[in-house]
Design a protein around this nucleic acid. Structure first.
Lengths: 225, 225
DNA sequence: CTCCTTATCCATACGTTGTACGATTATGTA
DNA sequence: TACATAATCGTACAACGTATGGATAAGGAG
């Protein structure tokens, strides 16, 4: 078959267009810009101006692309470690905030990232040092450190998942929640009804940042038991 | 076009084969048995012995099927409320355990369920009463109750996500973690290295049940500050 | 240098997916 | 009886992941 203009074989030295890294970076761009559903092998190839099948030389299949993206996100995590200059609880909070911030930078990937068990377990090894150090300084036993770190990570994951599932930065739970609660036969959930009404519409505007800080404080207080 | 045996028009009264409920129940069965990827509109239709396009009369598209499944899972949640017969913290823990158990009954759906913001916000209204009651009995202010409940839910979600991402009931983090940590240049993560080594291989066998209890206790201790 | 293996990219094609469109047949109301 | 509406089916299409195999050049071996 005649080739009309484009060479189709191996590129000349120094002009390789593809590599695992280049492909994953492009994929991350697509996902960040247009969401996870926009990431198809054809779309990815088009972005790179390459034939779809060329991608398969560098990555075995689409699942590998997604796993690679999870890896990328975690690799981008940089947990600042103030060392022993601040109290252990502040050290812990700073690490937790940085972790959440890292996940927040790619909201369209949160689901993929958080559900990739091997990526999650990888990151434990390479970035959890500040967590372990702070908990060690708090005087916990090894087993307690291990479990406390897991628990904190789980909270951050759950929080990030909720945060990513919601489009806007501040999601108005309030009107919804108020409306729904008031639609309930009051005796079905008396305490919930009372609490929500006491809070009123104003008090229910939900802000993720303060929600995160509140959870963090509760959790740290639990460690300090 | 001639119809060979099968009638193709509207079924006679009393023999409707489909309904939203019937479809969703069948879909849940497929997902539970064979995983979320096995759920296709054709497969679903085949299970119901129906033409794929018939499904679209009851549900607008596949996304609606998935959302419906999240709804089903939450609807199946039954949080037992021991009332004031037990201390508030025990009441809270029982509710949390039941919530986790509910999510665990459909591990293949965990991701879908937890990332469906509207389903999550729905469930808050209908099943969170025990959480609110326990926290109210603990003496918290309305705003604190609201935030504490959110935090606990986030923890359970994060925990369940991790649990669902892993196939087996007890996932051996240990060998992996030990191996990985030991492969690290020790100075990169000195505390992590030390803690993991002190724990040793035995101490690292991870059990989800005790991990959950540990997190729950930490969190409750935080509330009791 | 030549020969050969291997790396990189491309063209074609297949099976599967979600679902748009329109036909077909029964129901319920006028 | 006539007709709008509800429920199902048949056909068809575009887009998807990727298997297979061919083209071209790189890089090492002789």
């Amino acid at each position: 078959m005649i080739n009309d203009g484009k060479r189709s074989g191996r590129p000349r030295a120094g002009e390789e267009r593809l590599s695992r890294e280049v492909i994953l970076t492009a994929a991350l761009g697509i996902v960040d810009d247009e969401g996870i559903d926009a990431l198809t092998m054809r779309r990815l190839a088009a972005t790179l101006q390459v034939n779809p099948m060329s991608l398969y030389h560098h990555l075995p299949n689409k699942a590998a692309v997604l796993a690679g993206l999870a890896e990328l996100v975690f690799a981008g995590l940089e947990l600042p470690d103030p060392g022993d200059a601040v109290p252990w609880d502040e050290q812990l909070k700073q690490a937790a905030r940085a972790y959440r911030d890292g996940l927040r930078q790619h909201p369209n990937l949160a689901l993929q990232v958080l559900s990739d068990a091997s990526a999650v377990s990888d990151v434990v090894v390479v970035t959890m040092e500040p967590f372990y150090r702070a908990l060690d300084r708090a005087g916990l036993a090894p087993r307690e450190i291990f479990e406390a770190a897991n628990t904190l990570i789980d909270f951050i994951h759950g929080f990030s998942l909720g945060e990513a599932s919601v489009r806007a930065e501040t999601f108005e739970l309030a009107p919804d929640l108020l409306t729904r609660v008031r639609a309930l036969p009051a005796h079905k959930a008396p305490t919930l009804t009372r609490i929500v009404n006491e809070l009123g519409a104003d008090g229910l505007a939900y802000d993720f940042d303060s929600g995160f800080e509140s959870g963090l404080s509760t959790w740290v207080a639990g460690i300090r038991r």
